[in-house]
Design a protein around this nucleic acid. Structure first.
Lengths: 248, 248
DNA sequence: CGCGCTGTTGAAACTTGTCAAAGTTTGTGG
DNA sequence: CCACAAACTTTGACAAGTTTCAACAGCGCG
């Protein structure tokens, strides 16, 4: 464990760490909590972990005892099949929660890997359950977060099951754009933290296909692509590609 | 609402309805509850709804206020895209919970449709939250159920993203077989409640492809198929098809 | 400064989808 | 209870989209 990331208790940095002063609190677990309630949540979350690019917070098979809120950085989760194939099941950015896959079996079922140097807040799960038995707003919001994870997965199933390559990539870009926007970044210009292969894995495509579609989008003037630097030129058209024009 | 299924309060039938006497309790929400705890859960769940084949329990956009436990019968859930494409996101049988997609937004995001005449227990969600603040075992088990839904969806994403048609159908049959087994039915012989089109929609394939793969499996002696009646002849080989032999 | 990882592009192969036709089952109304 | 219509399934031939294989270019880390 120790070789995958460093653990640091935060005695005096509490103020800096506290949910109440965290810029991501409106996107994260504390949504809807009163100040006293948030203080109680802060009591739980006094551990942060920094994770270098390429390292994991947990791996499939690890014992589950906490969920993690992304404080900074970018993560992917991947599932491994017995036969060696693996697939990216999600990308996570600031304010999003990772690790809920482990609740059901007490074991994590996927790997969570940092795509850049990152930091997460460690949320001990049994203590979160304890507190959410006392704080209704926390309980309810946590349920919402889990539910949204299910709905998000449905969206990906939709994408994988019935969209063509161009539609998938368009949907992916639009989704990223929206999530960056919610975090105060530009809706139209961002760096991809993941490789073409990771995008392809997430979208059920080969990296070559992802690359080709990027090129096509660029030729059509929808986006400007320079390696990992993406500038979306025409969001409406991208949305149209995403949701429209099935070749009838 | 009234035209989609009938609602019946169950004054005196309580004993018959009670979770404590339900044959599915080991697969459903009451797992791990003591008798007094289960009695309190019974207090919540005094509504059942019968649903005719083809009718829905809820539709996308309906207000969310309850989740549903399948008591008998068989359901599918489907998501509809703006452009008219839709996709089956899951099949549900006895003891499984439907409707958790609605928690996050207070609105349901998919349709749940009975594939045969069915019956569900209505679990008012806010009362479930109330009770699970008091009953730790219930709280924890509910979290497990939601988590497993996420893990299940990851499995489907895996299947849609990186498996070929034969592997998908093999995985589907193995999964059904396991779920029937857990419910005391034959692992190797069952009726499919869904059409080829619905299977295809779930697996990201066209119905013709599903039909062809069934025929191929039959030719290879893996299963015997007569319309919706399936007999799995060689489960080990089916598992091998599922998880093995990627054309390298 | 160069080696390796990542990304791009082309041509051929393969899987799945599309269209079409015919067979089968199911359900309904007479 | 039968007949007919509608829905579902199977199968074939062909088309389309994606993958595979291969070669090369570019960026970035050590």
């Amino acid at each position: 464990m120790l070789n995958t990331s460093s653990v640091q208790p935060l005695s005096l940095e509490r103020l800096r760490t506290a949910c109440s002063t965290c810029g991501l609190r409106e996107l994260c677990l504390p949504v809807g909590l009163s100040q006293p309630e948030m203080d109680r949540l802060d009591d739980l979350i006094h551990l942060r972990r920094t994770t270098k690019k390429g390292q994991s917070i947990y791996r499939a098979g690890d014992r589950f005892d906490a969920i993690y809120a992304v404080r900074s950085g970018f993560f992917k989760t991947t599932v491994l099949l017995e036969d060696g194939r693996d697939q990216v099941t999600g990308f996570y950015m600031g304010g999003e929660l990772i690790g809920m896959d482990g609740i059901g079996t007490e074991l994590h079922t996927c790997d969570s890997i940092a795509l850049e140097d990152s930091e997460v807040c460690v949320i001990p799960f049994s203590r979160l359950e304890d507190l959410s038995r006392e704080v209704q707003a926390l309980q309810h919001h946590f349920h919402k977060v889990m539910s949204r994870e299910i709905v998000r997965d449905h969206g990906v199933m939709m994408l994988l099951g019935s969209m063509r390559a161009e539609e998938r990539l368009a949907a992916f870009l639009v989704n990223l754009s929206q999530r960056f926007t919610a975090r105060g970044y530009s809706p139209s210009e961002f760096y991809l933290r993941m490789t073409r292969e990771e995008i392809g894995s997430y979208l059920g495509l080969k990296l070559e296909t992802v690359s080709r579609v990027f090129s096509r989008f660029q030729d059509e003037g929808l986006v400007s692509v320079q390696q990992k630097h993406i500038r979306i030129i025409d969001i409406p058209s991208l949305k149209q590609v995403m949701s429209h024009q099935q070749p009838c």
